[in-house]
């Protein structure tokens, strides 16, 4: 049994101490003492979210929360360090602003739909790399500009090939993503768990 004295600590510190304790192996029972209602509620919720059964005792201004683990911990929500570690890193590389060969109008329609749907890959989508004609997706007037900005807001890194922008004379017109070089692109390929080429 682990005992944690979290008196005098403000949120979220009592939960963080409890979290550190239960993440160690072989912790089946944990007893936490706090001295305010907010910490008591938060510690209790945290333990319950980790599959602990809790009981509460109050003594004056002090609350004693006892947690007993009798089942496997529930999966933690996205964003927690543990979940981050389990995420795959998918890199998508677009070498064109059209999907497939044949009809150009159809190819463009497919690309718009593809970029718009890419967010479904979140949280595994890690980087989107745009080279050759692909860089045209990032400039003024591109129909996927909004979707790309949304991906960026979700924390997905968008790398846009500088040589390609320069070649098409579009360096000034890029509206989303970071201008990048071949070394960054090659390094991204090496770090990624999976590279999808379009």
């Amino acid at each position: 049994m682990k005992e944690i004295d979290a008196r005098g600590l403000a949120c979220p510190a009592p939960v963080l101490r409890t979290k550190a304790a239960v993440e160690q192996e072989d912790t089946n029972t944990v007893k936490v003492v706090v001295d305010n209602e907010a910490s008591q509620q938060n510690v209790k919720r945290f333990l319950e979210s980790q599959g602990f059964e809790t009981s509460l005792e109050k003594n004056g201004n002090e609350f004693f929360i006892t947690g007993t683990c009798n089942k496997a911990p529930q999966p933690q929500p996205e964003g927690d360090t543990q979940a981050d570690a389990e995420q795959k890193k998918i890199m998508v590389m677009c070498t064109t602003d059209r999907i497939g060969f044949g009809d150009d109008d159809l190819g463009l329609k497919l690309m718009i739909s593809f970029i718009g749907t890419l967010k479904e890959m979140d949280p595994d989508l890690w980087r989107l790399v745009l080279v050759n004609n692909g860089v045209k997706l990032t400039i003024d007037g591109s129909e996927v500009l909004q979707d790309l900005k949304e991906l960026e807001d979700r924390g997905i890194m968008i790398l846009v090939c500088g040589t390609c922008l320069d070649h098409f004379n579009l360096l000034e017109k890029k509206r989303v993503g970071e201008t990048t070089n071949m070394l960054d692109i090659v390094t991204s390929m090496q770090l990624a768990d999976k590279v999808i080429n379009i």
């Binding site: 949120c11 939960v15 907010a38 938060n42 919720r45 929500p77």
Partner: peptide
């Protein structure tokens, strides 16, 4: 909030 991150 379910993980105890409710501010005081």
């Amino acid at each position: 909030a379910g993980m105890g991150m409710m501010p005081a």
